[in-house]
Design a binder for these strands. Structure first.
Length: 280
DNA sequence: CAGAAGATCCGTCAAAAGTG
DNA sequence: CACTTTTGACGGATCTTCTG
């Protein structure tokens, strides 16, 4: 229970030997084993009322970094993920490269060409090219994939400005006019019609004013829920990444301070030896 | 080697914190 | 103040390690 009730008992994860792992799970375990007899009585809601809140990791880490120059700040944008294959990153064509939630790599070149590589494939050779042919293509160099996630029906979806691409596992009966690629063993892709400046993931949605039937309203609610879940899923991943980074930062700071402390103690002993009169 | 126990990861919910 | 973002809590799934 390290952040909660921190005004009473602030306990660093390192001190608890929780340097790696699911901290929140361990915290929950501790909370439950603290008083097993009462744990049934205190429900989660009541416990949440007791627990206090703390500032975000980004804020804390940035404050730490202002104190200690060696500590990197957490940036808004995620830095290039460590898993990106170098042979893709060094492609000559100017591209934007993204990794989907299932590990696929998506490279978007200028001109709207989308290339997809599976994690098991061999870098560029495993890339699958997909050219976007819609007339309202974004300007070169401005391509942004907004989300990469798995929808409820099991298909892989990612979004680019003006288009949504749905990656199907097998050949499906998609609308032929929208089919961009469906050859051989390759997955099938569907590019849906461009939308206006709607938020991330808002695709093919009617405006609320045009929703009449209960079925449409239900579909809208479902769509909103899926969008919210998708965003929160990504947010949780990012939050966990920040948390790990924060813990790493604290661990390294502990190591530095321990070394400093050791040096100071040695220095103190040396000075004591110099200053103290010898008895012999 | 099978099952138990622990560790880790992930998705979701809910509430606090942040923002315009 | 409404809306969005962030994060603790929780539970389930999967992987790893331990033990008989």
């Amino acid at each position: 229970m390290w952040w909660h009730q921190h005004n009473l008992c602030f306990r660093h994860p390192v001190e608890e030997d929780y340097s790696s792992g699911d901290l929140d799970k361990k915290v929950a375990t501790i909370a439950e084993t603290d008083d097993s007899a009462d744990s049934e009585v205190i429900d989660s809601h009541k416990r949440r009322e007791i627990l206090s809140r703390r500032p975000s990791y980004r804020k804390i880490l940035n404050e730490l970094s202002s104190d200690v120059p060696g500590i990197p700040k957490i940036e808004e944008e995620k830095s290039e993920e460590e898993g990106t294959p170098p042979n893709i990153a060094t492609m000559a064509v100017p591209t934007s490269i993204y990794q989907t939630s299932t590990g696929q790599y998506i490279a978007i070149a200028q001109g709207g060409t989308i290339q997809i590589s599976n994690p098991g494939s061999d870098g560029v050779q495993g890339l699958q090219a997909l050219t976007m042919t819609n007339s309202g293509a974004p300007p070169p160099g401005a391509t942004i994939v907004q989300y990469a996630a798995q929808s409820a029906d099991g298909t892989q979806q990612f979004f680019v400005p003006g288009s949504q691409v749905v990656v199907q596992d097998e050949e499906t009966d998609l609308a032929p006019s929208h089919m961009a690629a469906a050859t051989g063993d390759m997955p099938t892709y569907q590019i849906r019609a461009p939308t206006t400046a709607l938020p991330q993931g808002v695709v093919m949605a009617a405006s609320p004013g045009s929703l009449h039937s209960p079925q449409q309203l239900a579909e809208e609610a479902t769509r909103k829920r899926e969008l919210r879940l998708m965003k929160n899923r990504e947010a949780a991943k990012e939050c966990r990444r920040r948390k790990k980074e924060y813990v790493k930062c604290l661990e390294s700071r502990v190591a530095v301070l321990e070394v400093q402390n050791k040096k100071l103690i040695e220095e103190l002993e040396t000075l004591k030896d110099i200053c103290s009169p010898k008895t012999d």
